[in-house]
């Protein structure tokens, strides 16, 4: 009898606080699997941001460190500089990272700080009730744009991977979609690579995970997967945007 899959040890044995079908719990589950594989749970520091991702606090078994809204990269910078041997990752949502914390993420990436940022992009502000985020898709409805996002009025969705990959310092920048088994397996490999780069001291690593929000998109969980396939993925194209090791070869 061989176990094909068991629950990661890095997660507490309690139900998560996320809505049914929310891929946030999938994202933190993948991080847990990778941390288990690397055997780094006791050495990990999870920087807690503000938003739905704060619910990881009740779910993650390792150490947590809270930060102000959007300032997780700044807190991670301070912690990593004090404890360079620890495996530090900040897990941020799109409202947190791409809107209020835009300055912090770009400054941290430009300095090439040696930690990992996991960016969960669900193109809405989940916890506060589904307002328009910088990553809300064109035509997507939100509580602050009832007729759908209009680029003439509120601009275009912000592509963080493309933005950060133009900087010189980041070592690894990649985007994955979590709506299919293939995407999930690729995302796991990407997160593992990012953590390995960090442990080797290669510099700033950034992994964007495209996720859904059944509650605020107003759809059933299965419908959100379809919506991601037809709307989110054509705009936010998955792939590796920057890989310093690959450039050397």
């Amino acid at each position: 009898m061989a176990k094909v899959y068991t629950r990661p040890q890095s997660l507490l044995p309690v139900p998560s606080g996320f809505c049914p079908g929310c891929l946030h719990s999938m994202a933190i589950k993948l991080v847990g699997e990778v941390v288990d594989e690397l055997g780094q749970l006791d050495n990990t520091m999870h920087i807690i941001p503000v938003g739905c991702s704060t619910l990881n606090l009740l779910y993650w078994k390792g150490d947590n460190l809270g930060s102000a809204h959007g300032r997780a990269p700044a807190v991670a910078t301070g912690f990593k500089r004090c404890c360079p041997e620890r495996l530090v990752f900040a897990y941020q949502g799109d409202g947190d990272l791409a809107s209020i914390g835009l300055a912090e993420i770009i400054a941290a990436a430009n300095r090439g700080e040696n930690f990992t940022v996991i960016f969960a992009n669900n193109s809405t502000y989940g916890m506060t009730g589904g307002q328009m985020a910088p990553t809300t898709l064109i035509g997507q409805k939100a509580t602050t744009c009832k007729m759908g996002r209009d680029p003439a009025d509120s601009g275009y969705p912000m592509k963080m991977c493309e933005l950060l990959s133009t900087l010189e310092a980041p070592a690894f920048v990649a985007r994955y979609a979590l709506n299919t088994p293939k995407g999930v397996n690729e995302a796991r490999k990407g997160i593992k690579k990012a953590f390995e780069y960090q442990m080797a001291g290669k510099g700033f690593t950034f992994v964007e995970l495209l996720i859904n929000c059944p509650t605020n998109w107003g759809m059933s969980p299965l419908q959100t997967l379809e919506y991601m396939e037809t709307n989110t993925i054509p705009y936010f194209k998955p792939g590796v945007y920057k890989d310093k090791e690959a450039e050397v070869k």
Binding site: A2, Y5, R7, S25, N185
Partner: peptide, 15 residues
């Protein structure tokens, strides 16, 4: 189990 967001599924391979 891979697609379960809540890690609620455990899969065992028999002999």
């Amino acid at each position: 189990a891979t697609m379960c967001p809540e890690a609620a599924i455990e899969v065992t391979k028999g002999e």
